[in-house]
Computed example of a mutant assay.
Amino acid sequence: MPDHSADLSTDHSADLLLARALADTADAITTARFRAHDLAVERKPDRTPVTDADVAVEDAIRAVLAAERPGDRIAGEERGGAVEGGRTWVLDPIDGTKNFLRGVPVWATLIALVVDGAPVVGVVSAPALGRRWWAAAGAGAFTSDATGQRRIGVSGVRELSDAYLSTTHLGSWVEHHSREAYLALVDATWENRAFGDFWQHCLVAEGAIDIAAEAIVNPWDVAPLQVLVTEAGGRFSDLTGAPRYDGGSALSTNGHLHDPALTLLRTASASTTGVASEGR
C-alpha cells in the first residue's frame, strides 16, 4: 500500500490513515474488475444494479475493519447495517455502479467514519479517473492526481447568476422533489451540467463548480462528501437545509450560495405545489 504518513495530525489522523488504506484495498479490486468481460450483474429489490465487484469490495473492507477496528460498527450499501451511537464506518463500495458496468470511468469507492451521528472522516477514491479526495474534521480537505496531492477549497462565487450547477438524474426530481424547482435553479445560474453522483460534490469541494443538488440520496452516497465539502470551506445539507447526510437529499455549495439556492428551491417547489392543487 502507498505510504500515507504525510497526513496532517488530527484527533482522527489514525482513522484517516486507515480509511485511505481501505481505499487502496478497494481500488485493487475495482480496477481489476472494471471493463471485465465476465463482470456479473444482478438487480437489487429497488431495481438498481449490483456487480460482483460491489460485493467483493465491501466484503474486503469489512474484513480489514474487523481486524483493525473490531469495536466499530459497519453500515454498507450491499451488506446492510445501521448507524447508531458511537463509531460507525459507512461504505459505498462503488458509487456510480451504472457507470462502472457500462465502462464509464466516473465511479468511486466512498468511505466515511461517522461518530455520534456526524461524519468525521471521508475518503472518495476514483481510480479510473486517477483521483482521490479525503478529509477529516478539523484537518482540511485534500485531493491527489497525477501531479501529486494538494489542499482544496471551494470557490468564491457569490451570485447565483455566476454559479456553475450540477445534479445527477433530472428524472429523480420528478419523483422525489420538484422538477420545476430544479429547473428554476438552472434558470437562475450561469451554467449547468449533470456530472452526477460523488463527482459533483468533489468538484464543489475543489472549487471547480459551485452547487451540487440531488433530490434523492442514501446515507452511504454522501456521508464522506459532507465532511469533504465542509472541510473545504463549503456547506452541506439536505434540501430542507438541515446539515445532515442522512436526510434523503443533498445540497452542497461554496457556502455563499447555499441559502439563495435553498430559498429558490423552496419557493419554486411551493409555487408548483400550489398550481397543482388549484388544478384539481
Rank of each mutant, 00 (worst) to 15 (best):
L203I: 03
E77F: 05
T109N: 06
A181H: 06
E214V: 12
F236M: 03
H258S: 12
A112C: 08
R35T: 15
H177Q: 10
S237Y: 07
V90Y: 03
A139L: 05
Y182G: 11
I74C: 11
P260I: 11
G122T: 00
V124Y: 02
G122C: 06
E84V: 15
A137C: 05
Q149I: 03
W133Y: 15
S252W: 05
A270T: 13
L165Q: 02
E278N: 12
V227N: 04
A118K: 13
G103K: 09
T30G: 13
F236H: 07
W220S: 06
E78L: 08
R235T: 14
H12E: 08
L39C: 01
R20C: 06
G138I: 01
V174I: 14
G153Q: 15
G80A: 11
G255T: 03
L91M: 07
T31R: 14
R150E: 11
T253M: 12
T31E: 12
A19S: 07
G140P: 01
I94C: 03
R79I: 04
D11H: 12
F198C: 01
G207C: 10
G279V: 14
P2F: 14
D54L: 04
G80W: 03
T31K: 12
A36N: 08
R33F: 09
H12G: 01
H258Y: 09
D24C: 10
F100T: 00
R35G: 01
T48W: 10
V275F: 09
L251W: 04
G76R: 07
L39K: 03
H256D: 12
R73P: 01
T48M: 10
P119H: 05
I216N: 11
F34Q: 00
L185M: 10
I74E: 03
S166Y: 01
V174R: 15
G279Q: 15
R69T: 06
I216V: 15
P260E: 08
D72L: 08
K44C: 07
T273Y: 12
R47Y: 11
A66R: 14
R62S: 13
V123L: 07
R79G: 09
G171F: 11
V64G: 10
M1I: 09
A108I: 02
A6P: 00
V124A: 13
G248H: 10
A36R: 13
H176K: 09
G71T: 13
A270N: 12
P224L: 09
V204K: 03
P2K: 15
F34P: 00
E159V: 01
G247D: 04
I94H: 02
G103C: 08
A188S: 14
E68L: 03
A66K: 14
D187C: 08
W190N: 06
A223R: 05
F34D: 00
S155H: 04
T48H: 08
R266N: 12
E231N: 03
A188T: 01
R179V: 13
G81E: 08
P45T: 11
R73Q: 13
A139E: 00
L185F: 06
D15N: 13
P224D: 06
E68N: 05
A28C: 09
L228T: 05
A242Q: 14
L113Q: 04
